[in-house]
């Protein structure tokens, strides 16, 4: 994929539930290999935006356009963790491989190449030795890295992360955000990273999107511009 082709374009995107609007007139463009960090208060529409980008939520107005060879089948997604997973009997390798389902079409079983690629991704994220361990017996940080590996298996060109650091201790969170930085810099995967760990995320991001509580109000710019913007004041606790 060419580095500077836009993989994702949002054009005056409006999102809402029943009669409550959460996002109004949002436009941005993300190129291959860029990292967009999305911050904002609770309820400002960050997760809703991700759901719209994934095609799980229909916009009330505007469009989400994929470009540069990106399709719905080449997007990786790291959702917020659900309660059911905490005691799910599954090997870590089974979880990671399930990331390939989107590209499999009608084929019922994984190919050898897919199994090898899953193993390679696990090695890259430092969880290769956990492949045969039971998912529910892993620590929170290990679980999150296994889920990130699954998202990477699914990600052809775009990776969406929904608060990946939630519930991790500061060191584990730092480690995770360093990994995310590596992914977009070295592998050219575009990343959209919803987070509350704003200082960590600003270090790795190319673009910052701050969604304010008011639906139409948002900031979009580089981390440098964001640090000087009035919206960031309360968030960065300057």
């Amino acid at each position: 994929m060419p580095e500077n082709a836009a993989v994702l374009t949002c054009r005056s995107l409006c999102l809402g539930y029943e009669n409550r609007e959460v996002l109004h007139g949002l436009s941005f463009r993300l190129r291959g290999g860029e990292c967009l960090c999305v911050v904002g208060e609770n309820g400002s529409g960050k997760s809703t935006l991700l759901r719209a980008l994934l095609g799980l939520k229909k916009p009330t107005h505007g469009d989400v356009i994929y470009g540069g060879g990106l399709t719905r089948k080449s997007i990786g997604y790291l959702p917020q963790q659900s309660a059911a997973q905490k005691d799910f009997p599954a090997k870590a390798a089974e979880v990671v491989r399930s990331g390939f389902l989107n590209a499999m079409g009608a084929r019922p079983w994984y190919s050898k190449a897919e199994k090898q690629r899953a193993a390679a991704v696990m090695a890259q994220l430092g969880v290769a030795d956990l492949a045969l361990r039971c998912f529910r017996e892993l620590s929170g940080g290990q679980q999150r890295r296994v889920l990130l590996a699954r998202a990477l298996c699914a990600a052809g060109g775009l990776l969406l992360l929904d608060e990946p650091e939630a519930g991790l201790d500061p060191i584990a969170a730092q480690e995770l955000s360093r990994l995310i930085g590596e992914l977009h810099k070295e592998q050219g995967i575009a990343v959209i990273h919803v987070t509350h760990e704003i200082h960590e995320a600003l270090r790795e991001a190319d673009l910052v999107l701050h969604l304010a509580a008011q639906p139409g109000e948002y900031f979009l710019g580089t981390p440098e511009e964001y640090r000087n913007s009035p919206l960031s004041e309360r968030f960065l606790m300057k």
Partner: peptide, 23 residues
């Protein structure tokens, strides 16, 4: 179960992820 085993796994393990990736 034979044909859709991996998809059943994905839907059971993490429904939002399965839906997001086109299952």
């Amino acid at each position: 179960f034979g044909l859709f085993y991996h998809r059943i796994f994905s839907v059971t393990f993490d429904e939002p992820f399965a839906r997001a990736t086109g299952v």
